[in-house]
Design a protein around this nucleic acid. Structure first.
Length: 274
DNA sequence: AGGCAGGTTCTTA
DNA sequence: TAAGAACCTGCC
């Protein structure tokens, strides 16, 4: 179906923004995998996109996934070009990025895997896991089989040796334990939406292999709490070089996480000096 | 060819 | 409680 999207929707930037790992340029569009769903999107006009799904799927899932009810232009409007020129430049550069509403379980595993890995390596590991224990859910635009992200139940029964073969390295035991915790109900992430920010962070930090950075990625991308501000090597570099006097967290609340995305995307593309 | 990736855990004072 | 080392693997 054809969808018209007015503002702040750039598929390439979203694909490269580092928040999603199963969102790729494919043929003349983008393939998007989320949980057990596959979508192919092609831009057909300035603001028109062809979504390879039914109206029902769009209304019930993908519209939510792309967070189309949030006004990102308004969020960008919080930035004052004179007061914070660097963030303004970053937001202009990253205009079109949205924070996707992704599944907490899928994000938890994805960001546990992400530690000390570059993005292509993260993607490769995740695809191997999906092919190993996900379900075949169709074919992509090139005819290749695509697989769902495994459920906790599907992942937990995979022996550690097989997980290791997914190039997880030392993270294999983290992934296995997280699957065990979630499948057993010890860490029922999907029920943690009702927790306040502090409680949620504490719960996440109890998971083996989850530290402050991964926990904040989970809060921002898995729970869509737009004020979470994950600090990775890139962001730390930006804060150190561009904000020696401090970043204006109070000013941008409750959207610091959106600002983080602009800074992250800009600093990576710009290849910030050290 | 050694160093380093979107960090976290473990060990040591 | 806080630094420093160790950790898998792939890629430049």
């Amino acid at each position: 179906m054809i969808v018209t999207i007015e503002d702040d929707f750039d598929l390439k930037k979203i694909a490269d923004s580092g928040q999603c790992f199963r969102f790729n340029e494919c043929a003349d569009g983008y393939s998007v995998l989320a949980q057990d769903k596959y979508l192919f999107i092609k831009q057909v006009d300035d603001k028109k996109y062809d979504f390879s799904c039914s109206k029902e799927d769009y209304e019930n899932f993908w519209k939510e996934y792309f967070d189309l009810k949030t006004d990102y232009r308004k969020i960008r409007g919080l930035i004052d070009a004179d007061e914070d020129g660097y963030l303004y430049a970053a937001s202009e550069y990253g205009k079109g990025i949205r924070i996707l509403r992704q599944d907490p379980w899928e994000m938890l595993i994805s960001f546990i895997i992400s530690q000390r890995k570059n993005i292509p390596a993260i993607k490769a590991s995740i695809e191997k896991i999906c092919a190993l224990c996900g379900k075949e859910i169709g074919n992509d635009a090139k005819g290749k089989a695509v697989y769902s992200f495994p459920t906790p139940e599907e992942l937990v029964v995979v022996p550690l040796e097989k997980l290791t073969a997914c190039s997880l390295g030392y993270r294999d035991k983290y992934v296995h334990q997280a699957a065990l915790d979630v499948a057993s109900g010890v860490s029922n992430v999907r029920e943690w939406s009702s927790l306040d920010d502090k409680e949620l962070l504490e719960k996440l930090l109890e998971i083996y292999g989850v530290g402050v950075k991964v926990a904040n990625c989970e809060i921002l991308f898995g729970f869509h709490r737009l004020d979470a501000f994950p600090k990775d090597v890139w962001i730390n570099k930006v804060l150190e070089l561009k904000y020696p006097e401090g970043f204006l967290f109070d000013k941008y609340r409750p959207y610091n996480g959106v600002m983080q995305q602009y800074l992250f995307f800009y600093s990576r593309e710009e290849k910030l000096q050290k």
